[in-house]
Design a protein around this nucleic acid. Structure first.
Lengths: 199, 199
DNA sequence: TTCAATTTGTACCGATTGGTATAATTTGAG
DNA sequence: CTCAAATTATACCAATCGGTACAAATTGAA
């Protein structure tokens, strides 16, 4: 294999792009913002990632994998009460929205909101909705399958319970973006848990 | 007073601008979008409203006055239980986010989220944060002053309770923008009320 | 060394961004 | 009718938008 070697790490550049989209959204992120943060120029971006739309989708998957995926493990942690597990899930998610070393809010929620504005390409909308549905389904499956949830009857209203948590977390993401501090957001979680009936 | 008469109704044009910002946000709304929806051209827009930033702030106040203000009256309606009043407030707000004859979501929540993206002028950010704080304060005053709330001890955690409701409503606004239907969002409110401890 | 393969930086593309200058048009007052 | 005041439409501005053409630079294979 011949050819000049890339002067940038592709994963690292994608991570930088993810943060730009995370912070500014799709329409708010310009190619100048992206190439500036990634430390590359436009031809490198286009040859490595396709175009802005493809980069957005790749960055979305990177976000889901590196920042969103792990949180679900709290729900099935061993030797913890249901309240402790859900509390851990919510707390981990909210802390990930507070912007310590990352932008504030949630990449997925930010993108989904942009869905209503006609500024997103079709493929981006599809990727966002697919990720949303997958996340929703994982929560539904948890409420249906967990023994303690079944004992509380939460399995009978799994969709509503899942949507309730998703709503709360979209809300905390939005409030974090508007400048609310961690203490304020974490104080909300007491009410959230009572809404589920787990305390 | 001499001079040619305006060929458009200023309030009606402002309403059209409000809907564009409501749907697309500040950065997503172009002057072409705005003038197209308002039925005027750029010089008319600039002579009547100043510039994009001033128009955004005027449209924000129009939104608060025409779409957000009335909802709070549900909280102090006579001859209704606390649960009925809060439920009425939440239901009215969610229905206003569902986009029947209006864009989906919430103008204020959309703008506040954009606060984190560096695309908003300073004056717009100030106006949004002021409206947010005012709304927050009104809810806090309600939880502090309402007799039934005092009986439940909600007056002792008024800030947290207010922030809990605001979070939920930012969440429903976000979910509405991502395409969720009214039935899904209204189903969440049962959990929301239980979180407050009012059922 | 030569050549093909790959990445780089620069310079450019048409389209659109927010914003304005200017002149034509319409009005009421004198 | 005349003239000033106000709104209109057209055309234009520099800057930025997403995207690309192209040549210089760097590499491994022959």
């Amino acid at each position: 294999m011949a050819g000049r070697r890339p002067e940038f790490d592709k994963t690292c550049a994608l991570d930088a792009a993810m943060r730009v989209f995370w912070k500014k959204g799709y329409v708010g992120a310009s190619l100048a913002d992206l190439t500036g943060a990634m430390g590359i120029n436009k031809p490198s971006l286009y040859s490595s990632f396709g175009n802005k739309e493809a980069l957005f989708i790749l960055a979305l998957h990177q976000y889901l994998e590196k920042h969103a995926k792990d949180r679900l493990t709290h729900l099935t942690a061993q030797n913890l009460t249901l309240k402790q597990r859900i509390s851990g899930y919510l707390l981990a998610t909210v802390r990930g929205q507070l912007g310590e070393g990352t932008p504030r809010g949630c990449y997925l929620a930010q993108g989904l909101s942009e869905t209503a504005g006609e500024g997103l390409p079709k493929a981006a909308v599809q990727a966002l909705k697919a990720a949303d549905e997958k996340n929703m389904q994982q929560l539904v499956d948890f409420f249906r399958g967990d023994l303690e949830c079944q004992r509380l009857g939460l399995d009978q209203q799994a969709e509503k319970a899942a949507l309730y948590l998703i709503t709360l977390l979209h809300g905390t993401a939005s409030l974090s973006r508007s400048g609310r501090c961690g203490g304020e957001l974490e104080g909300i979680l007491e009410f959230a848990l009572r809404g589920l009936g787990v305390d």
